[in-house]
Amino acid sequence: MMTEFEWPWEYTFPPFFTLQPHEETRNQQIKVWSDLFLRYLKYLNKFQVNINENTFPLFNNDAIKRRLSPETITVILEQLQRTGHAAPLDKRRIEWQVYSYTLEEYANMVYDWIQQTGQLNTICTLYEIASGENSEGTEFHGVDEAVLLNAFRTLENKGKCEVVQLDDSFGIKFF
């Protein structure tokens, strides 16, 4: 896991850091950026970004002295939002939640796992799903609890689980 992250060639290509005026080129550029966002954040196991985070290597390539402007970052994140891989966390759209799988995919993964491990109708803590020993080796192990919680909200709407808050943490019961 901790092998060096492989940057795409575009990362060392200065124009890549500026939104291109030509529509087709720009679409292609945004697509490459979105993929790179997801890949890099997954590599770091990071689920939250701040568009003003200047020194974050994803936004800033020191070697070629190029940086993504917050506006460009917002454009990319909005694209990710359209595909279900990101959501703003505040009204000013500065903090964003980003996830390599969509919430629906996470929800299904966890639900399948719960079913396979016979944990239906049993209440679980959010922590044990996200970081417990039992979930080790699953794709959702180590996922940000806030992301999982949002995923479970979608399941809850379908009546497949119920989220309860107890004190400062959450429990989920699957049905």
Partner: peptide, 25 residues
Amino acid sequence: KKQSRVTEHDKAVLRLKQQRDKLKQ
């Protein structure tokens, strides 16, 4: 739909599990 399917019993179990998580942490 409004009636919660999480019973008091579940909550008791949840509380225990939370304690367990805290201990693990």
